[in-house]
Design a protein around this nucleic acid. Sequence first.
DNA 1: TTGAAAGCGCTAACAT
DNA 2: ATGTTAGCGCTTTCAA
Lengths: 345, 345
Amino acid sequence: MEKKRNISIKEIAKLSQVSVATVSRVINNNGRFSEETRKRVQEVIKQYGYTTNMTAKSLRMSKSKTVGLIVPSIDNEWFSHLVLEIEKYFFEKNYSVFICNTSQDEQKEIAYFKSLDSKMVDGIMCISGIEEIPTDVITRNIPIVCIDRKPKDHANAYYVESNHYSGGYLATEELIKKGCKRIAIVSRNKTLSVNKQRLEGYRQALKDYGLEEYSELQLLLDPSDANYEGARKAINELIKNKIPFDGVFATNDWRAYGVMVGLTENNIIVPDDVKVIGFDDISISSSCHPSLSTIRQDVISLANEASRILFDLMNEKEIEVSQRRYIIPVEVIRRDSTKKKISQF
Amino acid sequence: MEKKRNISIKEIAKLSQVSVATVSRVINNNGRFSEETRKRVQEVIKQYGYTTNMTAKSLRMSKSKTVGLIVPSIDNEWFSHLVLEIEKYFFEKNYSVFICNTSQDEQKEIAYFKSLDSKMVDGIMCISGIEEIPTDVITRNIPIVCIDRKPKDHANAYYVESNHYSGGYLATEELIKKGCKRIAIVSRNKTLSVNKQRLEGYRQALKDYGLEEYSELQLLLDPSDANYEGARKAINELIKNKIPFDGVFATNDWRAYGVMVGLTENNIIVPDDVKVIGFDDISISSSCHPSLSTIRQDVISLANEASRILFDLMNEKEIEVSQRRYIIPVEVIRRDSTKKKISQF
DNA sequence: TTGAAAGCGCTAACAT
DNA sequence: ATGTTAGCGCTTTCAA
């Protein structure tokens, strides 16, 4: 195959008998050229298949039509859905996205921030993770938008999140309405703001419905173990210790699934003996058996709002101060894991 | 927070009283400077928090320490696993990756190839998708490595894939060994090479074990419908048409799950009445009920081999010609969906 | 409406 | 061992 060489503005200029400045103006449609030159230049550009050398443009402008996307782990359905939607949004706008998988490693996150900065990304999107954003490693004043991550006192940062408090409340309420009295919560320990809010919702719901709060039913898993396996173990432990419970709110679907498997191992029937509800509504919740009731987060709104805000900030549109924080509503998805016994009807 | 301005080599040079060339040499450890200057320069660099402006470096070198990653849909566990591993590999090597989600859209793929080229990526990795690689839009001579995608006559392209033929064979053999006689295959139509190979393996296994091949049991779904839902519908159709079968090989786990749901809807018991096997071993196969036997692809080897090859090519290491094509073995994972009836023991 | 020229930050050829 | 300088491809100021 014949390889066409990378042709530059300079050559386009020569071929169309104008200066490089004029070519640049035509390309960027910056005015100050005649219709006739426009035609001639565009003709040559098309003929030679010219494309802009983005590295040169980025160097000159300290801008790159690129955003950085920080994500804890892309091999997690919930995050990958968000990433997909964000990527879609920015492709439309002619931006590329650098995906940066941190694996929850703070050092990796810092390294990525530096790298993104040196590559002149125009903005950064952070999904979940710690509150502290390592902005001190960034030399430029670029906007940062967070999803499900409340940035700590940082002037440039905005955030969008689901209403986790409401989610925790609704989940707990669903269990209460289906007759549960002793409701356990299986969550992740440490200061991830989203889990704190879900826990608060849970506590408020108990209070509102006059149920007691049992500290031994608050299973806060270690971050390294706050997954399917950890939840399974935790629920086994609870059973072994003969602590009674009839409902479980797990703060994500994988943990909820771990709980269901743990219960089944102990011949406890879901939902007859114990009801379970999760959070997120990823595919496992509808495919597992029994199917899992859960709180659905609106991925598309989350991704679109966050992307729109970042885009506007990068393009210096006015953003209302009230838009610094965006809360997206959640909804209850009722499936089999919180069904009442038929005999109770 | 005090913002340190982006400091350049020029300023570092002035501050450490050497020329820019020397600073560049120290940074890139290119020799031709004394130990003493090295110390002095590095001291200043550290003190002022200098980091390389990658856009300038990329422009100058026509290289960017960046790779493009073409993936059909990141919100697909199988692909996101691959992406995760690839990203890990390149982070180690100090490369960034541009993720490009094509949603199977050829136009989007072409747009991305152009964009990657203009951003001076050093190489491109393609996961799955069509055979035709739009290399004609790329002006530079960069290496391309494909995973599960056999590139059509392109000099620069290498590929790595699982042994899909063997996978198809093993899956079918597993069903045969568990007593199935009339084995259906639920796959995706059109010329995606991996599915063709899986089909070939299926046919060969039937032949080797002296079973007849029934064309009415080859359910080749339309690409737009080759998912969970499509498989469910297809199996319902088969049942409605009263075509007998006692085993199903679905060429991915989501289609296998669709088949199982379809069977359950018709009160057909898996595995007692019909046995089912899938492909990939994504999380649904172990979490669904009954758990799904499947063919496991070795994600980590796939990602690492492909990444290593791309890395070597980008760094002009010698690659053996025999390494142009890499086949990774697969293995059978036996779960409940292909269990023999207890009564048969 | 157009052009000349400076300069973004870096590397490397060449000179010393 | 170190410095000078050209130039990667682009935008933009200033002048015409």
